[in-house]
C-alpha cells in the first residue's frame, strides 16, 4: 500500500514542477519590468494600451457573436436530428468532428480563396464582411465542442416526450425550442459557450490571416516587440481560460444540485 502511493506522489510532484514552473516563471517575469523590485508596471502598461483595449473588446464581441451563431445553429439542429432524423446522426456527428481533422489554417486558406474580392461572394472585400466570415470561421472551430455539449445535454432529457407534451398544450415550434428545449439544455449550452469563449478570445491564425484587429494578433505583435508585457498578457490570458473552465464547473455543479431536488 505504501509503496503503491510513493510512485504516484513522485509523478505528481514532477507534474506540479512542469506545470507550475512556467506559470511561476511567467508571473515572476511579468513583475520584473521595474529594475530590482517587483512591480505591476507591465500590467498597467498593457491595460493602459489603447490597442489592448480595442483588440480585447473586438475579440470579446467576436466571441459573443460566435456563441450566438453557434447556439442558433447547433441547438435546433441537434434537437431536430434527435427528434426526427436519428438516422442522420452519424453524418452530422462526422461533420461536426471535421474541424478537429482539418487544421484551422487550411480552413481559413480556403476562405481566402473562396470569398476574396473577385469571387462570387466577396466577403473579404469589406470590414463587416470579413468580420462575418471570421465569426463563421470561429463557429466551425467551436463546432465540435458545442455540438458535443448540446447533444450530450439533449440525451439526458426525453426530447420526444417533452416535445409532445408541449405540442399537446398548443405550443408552436419556436415556443418549444425557446421555452422547453433550451432551458433543459441550458447547462450544456453554457458549457459549450464558455469553452467557445476560451478558444476564440486569443485565437491567432484565422484573425491574423484575415487581417482583423483581434486580440490574438495583438498578443503576437506585443510578443515580437516587447519584453515584459507579453508575460503580463500570458497571465491575463491564463486567468481568462481558468475563469471559463471554472464557470463550466460551476454551472455543471449548479445543475447537479437543482436536479437532485
Amino acid at each position: 500500500m505504501k509503496r503503491r502511493s510513493l510512485w504516484s506522489w513522485i509523478v505528481l510532484v514532477l507534474a506540479i514542477l512542469y506545470f507550475g514552473l512556467p506559470l511561476l516563471g511567467t508571473v515572476d517575469f511579468s513583475m520584473k519590468m521595474r529594475r530590482g523590485v517587483y512591480s505591476l508596471d507591465a500590467y498597467w502598461a498593457v491595460l493602459g494600451d489603447p490597442r489592448f483595449q480595442a483588440t480585447f473588446l473586438y475579440s470579446v464581441v467576436m466571441a459573443c457573436m460566435t456563441i450566438v451563431v453557434g447556439v442558433l445553429l447547433v441547438v435546433p439542429t441537434a434537437y431536430w436530428v434527435r427528434l426526427k432524423l436519428p438516422r442522420w446522426r452519424p453524418v452530422i456527428e462526422f461533420i461536426t468532428m471535421l474541424p478537429l481533422v482539418i487544421p484551422a489554417i487550411v480552413i481559413v486558406f480556403g476562405y481566402i480563396r473562396l470569398y476574396n474580392t473577385s469571387s462570387w461572394l466577396p466577403l473579404t472585400g469589406s470590414a463587416l464582411g470579413t468580420d462575418a466570415l471570421l465569426t463563421l470561421g470561429y463557429t466551425t472551430l467551436a463546432l465540435p465542442y458545442m455540438y458535443r455539449a448540446v447533444d450530450t445535454g439533449l440525451r439526458t432529457i426525453d426530447v420526444a416526450t417533452l416535445t409532445e407534451a408541449a405540442e399537446s398544450l398548443g405550443a408552436g415550434w419556436i415556443t418549444v425550442m425557446w421555452r422547453v428545449i433550451l432551458p433543459n439544455v441550458l447547462v450544456a449550452v453554457l458549457s459549450g459557450a464558455f469553452l467557445t469563449f476560451a478558444i476564440v478570445i486569443g485565437e491567432f491564425t484565422m484573425a491574423a490571416l484575415l487581417n482583423r484587429p483581434a486580440f490574438g494578433p495583438y498578443l503576437q505583435l506585443v510578443g515580437a516587440n516587447r519584453a515584459y508585457e507579453p508575460a503580463a498578457l500570458a497571465v491575463i490570458a491564463f486567468a481568462i481560460t481558468w475563469i471559463c473552465m471554472g464557470l463550466i464547473q460551476l454551472v455543471t455543479r449548479l445543475q447537479k444540485h437543482t436536479m437532485r431536488v
Partner: peptide
C-alpha cells in the same frame, strides 16, 4: 496559442 509561447519564453 500565443500566451503559452510567452509563458515558456519567460
Amino acid at each position: 496559442g500565443v500566451p503559452l509561447a510567452f509563458a515558456f519564453l519567460a
